[in-house]
Design a protein around this nucleic acid. Sequence first.
DNA 1: TTGTGTTTTATTGCCTCC
DNA 2: GGAGGCAATAAAACACAA
Length: 322
Amino acid sequence: MAARSFLYGGDSGGGGGGGSGFNSVLVTNKRPPFSSSMPLDSHFVSGSTHSFAGARSMVSFDQDGGNGSGRNFFQTFDQEENGDDEYDDYFQHPEKKRRLKADQVQFLEKSFETENKLEPDRKIQLAKELGLQPRQIAIWFQNRRARWKTKRLEKDYDVLQESYNELKANYENLLQEKEKLKSEVHDLSDKLLLQEMEKGTSDSSSTKSPCEPLQQEQAADFLNDEDVGVRSDATESSSPQYVDLIERGDSSYLFEQDQSDESLDEEDKLEKMFVTTVSGYMLPKIESGDYPELDAVNSSYLEFPSHGEDEDEDQPFGFWSY
DNA sequence: TTGTGTTTTATTGCCTCC
DNA sequence: GGAGGCAATAAAACACAA
């Protein structure tokens, strides 16, 4: 057995100990039995003379091996209260664990509430009050601290779980809201596009050549052309995105490149691919009434960025983004 | 009554502090 | 190196359903 291997070898506070075993049993408690009718608070009064008769609660061993022989065992066992049967039981099974009485536990609980650490003086005092071994008091506090810690961990876990659930719910709400807004924006841009097309076909039909379907490849090439850089701040404009993106004529807004001689080719390119509306906006050339084509354009160039691309300011179709 | 799960009491070994 | 705390664990006591 280790240094602390004993069953209540006096108050060693965990360090003492030494020989133990039933041969060294010696009961030390000679205090009057604790009466459950006593107000518990009285036991907290300093210098209180009340005490528990704890000897019945636990087997006690003396450190020195005791010279007590035979009937010295459980000398103060409360025979009056427990009767001969229990006495015999103790005598025949002296190592049996005994639970503390409810009153004793209540007393210890109160003490624990005031301070969950146990100073040596307090331990002795409590032991006297309860008629238990100081070692028992120490063990009780130790186990009580462990239970308290477990409870606290459970509470902490619950709090964290609740917080997590709340955050998760908020996140899901935001996702839903985002999807809703996305579809709203899509609908509105479709409407705007149709509006502009109607204007364009009715007002310019007499003076302009028939609209040609926008070739996706052409458009993609054009829009990807580094020489025709799209202004990245177009998306930050407060005007409708489509309008911002394709402002007519004033290519200085849409494009960074100067209107130099070389840019004449680009102007031709623009003319081929876009139609200028009466309201001055440039729209991709689409055959009037050919809405499936429009859908194709929409799906090709009006796609929403997927997750993670939202912050990509350099994407080639940035001005199509919302 | 009995099997089983939970709680309580106690031990052991390791660690830190003084 | 001793005192005391803590985690892990054993084991008795207890609760309770079948």
